[in-house]
Design a protein around this nucleic acid. Structure first.
Length: 207
DNA sequence: GATTTGATTCTCT
DNA sequence: GAGAATCAAATCC
C-alpha cells in the first residue's frame, strides 16, 4: 500500500484512522478518520518541502514510508504528513482534514474555537491540534501500534473519492493532487494560494 | 548576515 | 473580505 507515488497512495489513506495517545496512559486518546489529503511528490513537485533536496527539516520524508513528518508553519501551526514513497524518494501526503470518531471532548478542549464537531479537524493545522500533535512527534513510526500516533489503514479504499487542485500552494497550483471523500462535511473549503495571481476577470462592464 | 515567504487560522469589519 | 499573529527555513546580497 505505502511505497508508491503520493498521488497513487492518496486514495488509500482516505478513511484511515489515526489515533493519538495523550500520554503514557491510554486515557485521553483521540481518533480521527482521515477525509482529506494532499499529495506532495518530493523532488518532482515545486510545492514540496523536498523539492530542493534534503535538509535537516525534511529529512524524515527521505526515509522509509509509514513515518510521520511534522512541520511548523506561519509561526504557530503544525501540519502532519505521512511519508508514502520508498526510501530516498521523499514523497509524502499532507493530512488536511478528518472526522473525530473518538475523544471528541478532549478534541474540543484542545480546539476551543471549534463550534461544531465537524470543525474540530477541518484543516491541516486544526487536525494536528485536535490530535495534540507537535514537532515532538516528528519522525515516529505510524505503523507501530506502540507509537504515540498510530495509523490504521482501511481494508479497501473508499469508493467516493474526489480530486482537485491543492489548497494554499503557490507553485504547481493547478496539479490535481488533493483527494477527499466526496460530500464529507469535514473536508476543508477550497482556497487558492494567497499569493497566486487573481484569475482573469471577463470584461462585462463598459471599457 | 538580513530579508522574505510560507502545505494556516482566527477575529474583526 | 481582509489583516494580524509569529517562527523557521530558504534565498539573496
Amino acid at each position: 500500500m505505502l511505497g508508491g507515488s503520493a498521488a497513487d497512495v492518496a486514495p488509500a489513506l482516505l478513511g484511515a484512522v489515526l489515533t493519538s495517545r495523550a500520554g503514557p496512559s491510554d486515557a485521553g486518546s483521540v481518533a480521527v478518520r482521515i477525509t482529506e489529503v494532499e499529495a506532495y511528490e518530493g523532488a518532482l513537485d515545486p510545492a514540496s518541502h523536498a523539492y530542493r533536496g534534503r535538509t535537516a527539516r525534511n529529512a524524515v520524508m527521505f526515509g522509509p514510508p509509514g513515518f510521520l513528518y511534522v512541520y511548523f508553519v506561519y509561526g504557530m501551526h503544525w501540519c502532519l504528513n505521512v511519508v508514502c514513497g520508498a526510501e530516498g524518494t521523499s514523497t509524502a501526503l499532507l493530512l488536511r482534514a478528518g472526522q473525530i470518531i473518538d475523544g471528541i471532548e478532549l478534541a474540543h478542549e484542545r480546539r476551543p474555537s471549534a463550534r461544531t464537531d465537524a470543525d474540530l479537524a477541518r484543516g491541516p493545522a486544526r487536525l494536528a491540534a485536535a490530535l495534540g500533535a507537535t514537532g515532538a512527534q516528528n519522525g515516529i513510526d505510524l505503523l507501530d501500534p506502540a507509537s504515540p500516533l498510530h495509523l490504521l489503514l482501511p481494508d479497501q479504499p473508499p469508493a467516493d473519492v474526489a480530486r482537485g487542485p491543492r489548497v494554499g500552494v503557490s507553485s504547481a497550483a493547478d496539479a490535481p493532487w488533493r483527494f477527499w471523500l466526496a460530500g464529507d462535511r469535514t473536508v476543508s473549503p477550497y482556497r487558492r494560494a494567497p499569493r497566486a495571481p487573481a484569475p482573469p476577470v471577463p470584461r462585462t462592464g463598459p471599457a
